[in-house]
C-alpha cells in the first residue's frame, strides 16, 4: 500500500460568478521515500493540490470530492484538531519565498522551538537541541548564533535552508515543496536542490516537488505529473516523460526550455495562454493551443490512461 494515495481529488471555489473547479480528478500515489514532481504553468492547480492534501484550502474553497489516504487514514475526513497533528508533524510543507515564510519579528530559534512544541511534549532545552541538529543537517554553520538571529539577518539561500530545517524538525514522512527554489538565484538553486535530494535520501522522506521548471524536476524526482487547467494530463517516470513526452503540452514545455534553442534563435513557445478556470473549453482543455488538433479534441474530454507506468490524457498521444 502506498504511503499517500490521492484519489479523484476535486476542489471547488464558489464565486459570485458561479462554481469554479480548481482541480478535478487528480489522483496519484506516493510510496515511502519516493520523490515526485508536479509540473505545470501558473494556475494549473499545482499549489491547490498541495494545500488540498493538508486540508488547508483557503475559504471559500472546499474539497468537493475525492479521498487522501495517508497511512490508511483519509485526511479529507479528519477533524481540524487531528489534521493539526498531521500538519508539520507527519507532512511538512516548504514555500516559495523564504523571506515571506519566516515571521520577520521572531528569531529563528523561537520559530523552530515553537514548531516542535506544537507537536511534542518536551522542554525548550530539548527542542533547542533538536533545532541545532536540524540546522546542522541542512549544513548551516555556527548554528547557535543562527538561532538567536532574525530572518532579515540571513541571506536568501540561508533562509531557505532554515525553512527546510523547520520542515524536517519533526521527522516527517512527506515534505511538500511548493516551488522551493523559484525565489533563489541559479547557483543557490542548485545547492538547495542537492540538499533537498540528499535529505530525502538520508531520512527516507517522501517528496512532492511542485514547480514549473522541468529542469528542476528532472534533477530531483523519480516520477512526474504534468498538470494543465486543473487536471493531470500526463504522468510517468521522470526520465521517460522527459525523453519521450506523450502529451503535446509536455512536448511543448520541453521544447520551450532555453537549452533547446541555439543562441540568437527565438525561444520556442506554446502559442496562446492557459484558459482561466471559468472558461475551460469543451473537449480537451488544451485543444485551442495544440498543434495536433483534430475534430474529436473539441468535443470529447480525453481520459488519463495508458500502459504500465505511463499515463496520458490525449486522444492522439505522441511517441507511442
Amino acid at each position: 500500500m502506498p504511503l499517500l494515495s490521492v484519489n479523484n481529488l476535486e476542489v471547488v471555489f464558489p464565486l459570485r460568478t458561479g462554481l469554479v473547479t480548481a482541480i478535478k480528478d487528480v489522483s496519484f500515489d506516493l510510496e515511502q521515500g519516493e520523490r515526485i514532481g508536479i509540473v505545470g504553468e501558473s494556475g494549473a492547480g499545482k499549489s491547490v493540490s498541495a494545500f488540498a492534501i493538508l486540508n488547508l484550502i483557503s475559504k471559500p474553497g472546499y474539497l468537493a470530492a475525492g479521498s487522501i489516504l495517508f497511512n490508511g487514514r483519509d485526511l479529507a475526513s479528519l477533524g481540524e484538531e487531528e489534521m493539526r497533528q498531521i500538519r508539520g508533524n507527519e507532512i511538512s510543507m516548504i514555500f516559495q519565498d523564504p523571506m515571506m515564510t519566516l515571521n520577520p519579528v521572531l528569531t529563528i530559534g523561537t520559530q523552530m522551538e515553537e514548531t516542535i512544541l506544537a507537536h511534542k511534549n518536551m522542554s525548550r532545552q530539548e527542542a533547542r537541541k533538536i533545532s541545532v541538529a536540524k540546522l546542522k543537517a541542512v549544513q548551516i554553520p555556527s548554528t547557535e548564533t543562527r538561532l538567536t538571529q532574525y530572518p532579515h539577518e540571513l541571506s536568501g539561500g540561508m533562509r531557505q535552508r532554515v525553512v527546510i530545517a523547520i520542515a524536517l524538525l519533526s521527522d516527517p514522512a512527506i515534505i511538500i515543496a511548493d516551488e522551493p527554489t523559484t525565489a533563489l538565484d541559479v547557483t543557490i538553486q542548485a545547492e538547495i536542490l542537492e540538499l533537498l535530494l540528499n535529505l530525502c535520501n538520508d531520512f527516507d522522506v517522501g517528496l512532492i516537488l511542485i514547480t514549473h521548471d522541468l529542469g528542476v524536476v528532472s534533477e530531483v524526482t523519480q516520477r512526474i505529473l504534468v498538470m494543465y487547467a486543473g487536471r493531470i494530463i500526463e504522468q510517468g517516470p521522470t526520465h521517460q516523460v522527459i525523453a519521450r513526452p506523450m502529451h503535446p503540452y509536455t512536448q511543448g514545455l520541453l521544447g520551450a526550455l532555453p537549452e533547446k534553442t541555439r543562441p540568437g534563435q527565438r525561444l520556442n513557445q506554446i502559442p496562446g495562454v492557459m484558459p482561466t478556470l471559468q472558461e475551460i473549453p469543451a473537449g480537451c482543455p488544451f485543444h485551442n493551443r495544440c498543434n495536433q488538433i483534430q475534430a474529436v479534441c473539441k468535443v470529447d474530454l480525453p481520459i488519463l490512461g495508458g500502459t504500465g507506468s505511463r499515463a496520458v490524457a490525449c486522444h492522439f498521444p505522441l511517441n507511442r
Binding site: R84, I86, R87, G88, F95, N103, L106, E114, A118
Partner: peptide, 27 residues
C-alpha cells in the same frame, strides 16, 4: 502573508498563530 500560511502548515493552533505570530507584527 505566507508566514501565516507557513504557521498553519506547521500545525500551530489558531490562537498561537494570532498571539505569537500576528500580534508582534502589529506592534
Amino acid at each position: 502573508k505566507e508566514y501565516v500560511d507557513a504557521a498553519r502548515v506547521i500545525g500551530l493552533k489558531p490562537m498561537t498563530i494570532v498571539y505569537r505570530h500576528i500580534l508582534p507584527n502589529t506592534f
